[in-house]
Design a protein around this nucleic acid. Structure first.
Lengths: 190, 190, 190, 190
DNA sequence: CTTTAAGCGAGACGGTACGTCGAGTCTTATC
DNA sequence: GATAAGACTCGACGTACCGTCTCGCTTAAAG
């Protein structure tokens, strides 16, 4: 497990091993079972090497997310021409992600991390304000922008998070109702 | 006709002391710093008395919420005739709640609890589906009901939670934009 | 497991059940693993019933020994005409007694009890000063009595106890050497 | 040629603090009131540091004895020319040792430790087989050696232990009778 | 005959200690 | 001077028993 060492400069190998180990353990057991000792063990690294560069497990995870070790290529927005459908599909996919064998969702675990660690929370917001999502949402809302658009984006992701927290399922109809209500269209006929 | 019983009976005094201690410590330090030992110490109770009746700190907190030891009278929906304004005020109030001296919000801490404990998560959902809130929201949306109404309710609370997690502020304009976009009215003039 | 009850006089059934349970558990796991709660459970008795009549687990065991629930018929002094041989056989038998599956000797466990509980210690002494043993020992020593006889008796049993404590074996030759040296005879030819 | 080693090394300071704390607490309260937590507290050490190097309180005490933290210089055999007298004095001294304020003897407590812990039991035997004691005893018995000598040594110490367990006093006459009977001399005139 | 009060099985209570885990800090030897 | 290793103090975990204290019951003796 020991890594080759290379003297008095920061070891990139160690850095990557740590981030990958953290991402794996996060996916396997959720944020709450993540332990610095476990990360060090898995990464074949001394604990001090972690503490030297990060201040808490939240920081490690935040960086792992930022670097794409977690959720790496998995999240991309489809483009079928139907903006609302694409959004609904993306959200349903996000909601359905689960990793640990106990069936607990990755999103829920991610929220646990964000609730404890401000940096992760901030990243969570940045993620939804990312260009591709906002663009598609703007299309779905007839070109809206600014505070209205941001509010809509937060409402969409927030609703999904809330479902994850309440351990309720979210079927296709629910998802469609959510996208419709937030993007403001298609009131169902009474 | 009384049920036959033998042996001593559960101590109501201990039960209350535990719930109150848990609520206090939760408000003071957040869910993540809550410890069974700390609750027992504060409540003047043996640890075993907690473990005898609850299976985790999450369970204790869930019961504390249910019994109103946490958030006791603080959350009531105003009624000024302006349904959207009332909702915005209620959400702003919820968002602003903070207890611990470090300025961390109570809502954020509550989300941390929900993320770890399924029971608390379920209660969180029940809370937003409570009659008074849904009724006012229905008014604000022109009498909508069913899946659409539920989706709107979840979008509203979800957005506020997301803001709490991202440690961004939520000013009155943001809140208004949120309520407007979700209740579907008043596109602002460009 | 519940016993029939008989009103406000001490229940002999409970008393016996307790002593028997204590003796069994002592034999199974040794004095150090004996627990009042375990005795109560095994005896089908409330803890308070034990505490009402005895002040400690040592007291219970002491009474169990006195009543013969422990070591009941097992210890009798043989009489073959060879007084020294009889003593050696009796001591070897005492030394060899073992009960728990871990192979720990009953004598060692008994000493543990005596070391913690004065009452048991006193009984231990009474046991060796019992008439049959003393009589045979007196024969072996040519009619000695008084302090000399008592000292010899204590030396014999003490040596066996010491061997039990040191977890050394005690073979027939050792035992014979011990009896010889204490009874004062048969110096081996140099 | 030195063994390659990596990582930190066992803290000698912690080791000594633990052994000293254990010896003190043993002397103050006896083996039965000794607790790992108490030792850790007194030594100013984490519990884990004890569990890392010893497997039980018995092991700690065994090492404390071996290193002389317990009974350090107190036990030396006098040499007055009268071998029997020296032995009697040494035994009387051993018997009289008491430490705790409740007057319980150190020897009795030591036996409790030996009864629970095999290692301590073994050390107990080694102690009596130590050269100075055996030599003097051999003198007292006219040069005896071998199994006979060992049996005599065990009988002497065993008798004293038995007295300690039975909480009977052991006056000078008793002691003299014991030494005489075991060393085989001076039948008193009736 | 009631009452009354003690003994009973049961088990909750406030505690103490158990042995384990992990946190974050510090130390050693190696590169 | 960064690294892998891992010992250190500390604090919480969940469990086992301690000895005390109710409960609701049964039943022998006192009124």
């Amino acid at each position: 497990m020991a890594l080759p060492r290379s003297g008095p400069v920061r070891s990139e190998a160690a850095r990557l091993a740590i981030l990958e180990a953290a991402a794996e353990l996060f996916a396997e057991g959720g944020y709450e079972h993540l332990a610095i000792e476990g990360i060090a063990r898995r990464a074949g690294v001394g604990k001090q090497t972690i503490y030297r560069w990060w201040s808490s497990k939240g920081d490690v995870i935040a960086e792992a997310i930022l670097e794409g070790h977690l959720l790496d290529g998995r999240r991309h927005l489809p483009d079928t021409g139907d903006a609302r459908g694409d959004l609904a599909a993306w959200l349903a996919d996000l909601f359905a992600l689960r990793a640990s064998p106990d069936g607990e969702g990755l999103l829920r675990s991610f929220v646990a991390a964000a609730a404890e660690n401000a940096e992760i929370g901030r990243r969570l917001r940045e993620a939804i304000l990312a260009a591709p999502l906002m663009e598609r949402l703007s299309q779905a809302m007839g070109g809206t922008s600014g505070a209205r658009l941001e509010a809509a984006a937060e409402a969409l992701l927030g609703a999904v998070i809330l479902r994850a927290l309440s351990r309720e399922d979210f079927d296709a109809d629910d998802m469609r109702a959510l996208v419709d209500v937030v993007t403001g269209g298609s009131h169902p006929p009474l």
